[in-house]
Design a protein around this nucleic acid. Structure first.
Lengths: 357, 357
DNA sequence: AAGTGATGGTAAACCGTTTTCCCTAAGGGA
DNA sequence: TCCCTTAGGGAAAACGGTTTACCATCACTT
């Protein structure tokens, strides 16, 4: 006891100064602080002394030195199209919970559907030595990196990538049987942009389910969100309801012979409702609208949205879990696909099909 | 020429292997690749040879080694309450533009107004050796870190922190004169939660401007967004329109003797409109609503929102610029406050005050 | 003949950890 | 007596760059 020198090392305290202060070797101090198994022979008293000094001198191990030695960064890269509230925010709330618990941080990179960025960002993040990647709503097949990758809603069969996906068949089945049950036979479909991986899968499911339940799809009623409407314009957010307003307005120019529309997502649905209202139509009196995702604004839209809720937070959580496992054990067998179940939420934007039509 | 050995180093190529391959010293290779000024005496031919080999062998300098030596990480920490679309997304779109141009990445940390996290995250990020901090909508006075800090909408006079703030007086003046000009004399005010730095400043401005233009504020018409409504519940987004629905519903229980309401932000305004409608009131027929921020959904709300547009993207951009400057030159004199100008956007949610009231 | 200034580099220190391999003294068993 | 084990710890080699301080040669002055 009282072996402490009272000379406190001046300036920043690193392992060397700490060790000198304690009159021990760096080895010993390091072993104790990391309570490494090979330090079993170090007596309790010494351990306490080391820990106490580290606390008192406010010793913080240098992140770079440690990472250089262990060659891991305790951080992952998150690649997403944008920071939209609809998708990104909800997925990330699940992701962050898992990452934080494991003492991981993350870099965000938004590619705005720019093909060059989709290829460049992974490279840049690999140079930053991220331990793994989380892909949100981004095609995984073009990403080649030397670290584990988990894709959420990617639907691509890339090697060594685990996909977290929604059960689209069930989701679409819930939506279409709801409309069919309300008497709707002329149902418009607003497809998603090409770039988004979900778009194609969703469309396939719609065709399949429609056939199953005997709903005839009129190809004149199939409209599409403009992919270029998604690209970032100066200072403007790409996920604006505008993306749904335009195609619906265009459809209404051609025909009003439909009683319902199934939109690719809630944001687009809100835009579509606006277009319908601007055309003098009533929702759901004249036209029922179904969205997808169940973003927070869905419940507060006017009328509130009937929609398919994706368990986005859960998907983010599972994705992060799988990624962290894969990082911790690079050799572990990885699941190819994890399927999550949707939930159908009925609100005000859907009603029985109008009698006369 | 043809001095290249054809023996390509196997496995990962680092500076040593690259130098051996070139039969040069690591020093030379390093100097050339960083085109350091002290490499002026190295002939063009050699430079080419080095660069060519680096390209061919796909040499990537190790991020940790470099950062360890230079003690800078080329990344900053962003501290924000949450990932809301209303605020975060728009500010970040400006921030990212600047950071990317300077080859910087960023860690995001959301504190959800949890006091402990507001103190813990900065420490954790300092251990990760971020080169600076960007505070979004977060009080700056409690953050003590050894790196530059720029706060956006923080309104705190912390030492060595540059504040990027809105001209609240002008913003409020625009909103209140608009309502006053439309004949509104009974104006309800929905104040922001305590936790958000803007709330208090905004309220001060409202009182001041009201006095200036001769609008009497009735304290019975002053309501408040519940701060606890902001905290994160399991999987739920904190910035839901709900935050505005509740206080407005409560106000309507007490009185209907008002013709307009000025809300703290657009999200709350959308919730307030919903509450007004649920109570059988018409917007803007019976009550006019003014929001704040001008988020994308504001234009697509029903009715679309009259609101004060904050130049959030610009604020993010300026903030990032100042931060990067400060990082590059720690000694530079830093501005204490940078004031940005708002823009008033008139849409459907405001109209002349009803005659009878 | 000595000095001087480019030219074309190199050796070695350094950044701060982790980790491998080693040392010594004491005690115990054969 | 000799060997072996265990407690308690240390020296030094990684990790992979950047940076400082030199060095050798040669051409050209003075």
């Amino acid at each position: 006891m009282a072996r402490d020198k009272t000379v406190t090392p001046e300036g920043h305290v690193n392992l060397r100064t700490l060790a000198e202060h304690l009159e021990l070797s760096q080895t010993t101090v390091s072993l104790v602080l990391n309570n490494s198994p090979s330090a079993r022979s170090i007596p309790q008293e010494t351990r306490e002394r080391v820990r106490e000094a580290a606390r008192r001198l406010n010793y913080r191990p240098n992140y770079f030195a440690r990472s250089l030695r262990q060659s891991r960064s305790m951080s992952v890269g998150v690649l997403a199209p944008d920071l939209s509230e609809g998708y990104f925010t909800r997925v990330m709330s699940g992701v962050v919970a898992e990452l934080t618990a494991a003492h991981y941080f993350y870099f965000t990179a938004c590619h705005d559907w720019n093909q060059e960025m989709i290829e460049t960002y992974p490279r840049m993040l690999v140079e930053r030595a991220v331990d793994g990647f989380l892909l949100l709503n981004t095609p995984a097949d073009q990403i080649a990196v030397p670290v584990p990758v988990v894709a959420i809603s990617a639907h691509s069969a890339a090697d060594h990538v685990t996909n977290i996906v929604l059960d689209h068949h069930r989701a679409v089945h819930q939506a279409l049987t709801h409309l069919y049950g309300l008497g709707h036979r002329r149902v418009a479909i607003m497809r998603g942009p090409n770039a988004i991986p979900d778009s194609e899968v969703r469309w396939q499911s719609i065709q399949q389910v429609a056939a199953e339940i005997g709903l005839k799809l009129d190809r004149n009623l199939v409209i599409r969100i403009d992919a270029t409407g998604w690209s970032m314009k100066a200072g403007q957010h790409p996920m604006a309801p505008e993306i749904g307003y335009k195609p619906m307005a265009a459809l209404l120019e051609r025909t009003r012979d439909f009683t319902a529309v199934f939109c690719f997502n809630d944001i687009a649905a809100i835009g579509a409702i606006r277009a319908l209202k601007d055309a003098g139509l009533n929702v759901p009196g004249d036209v029922s609208v179904v969205g997808f995702d169940d973003i927070q604004s869905a419940a507060f839209a006017m009328p509130s949205l009937t929609t398919v809720r994706q368990p986005l937070t859960e998907m983010g959580k599972r994705g992060a879990q799988v990624l962290l496992e894969q990082i911790a054990n690079r050799e572990a067998a990885l699941p190819v696909e994890i399927v999550m179940e949707p939930e159908f939420v009925i609100r005000e934007s859907t009603a029985a099909a109008p009698a006369g039509r």
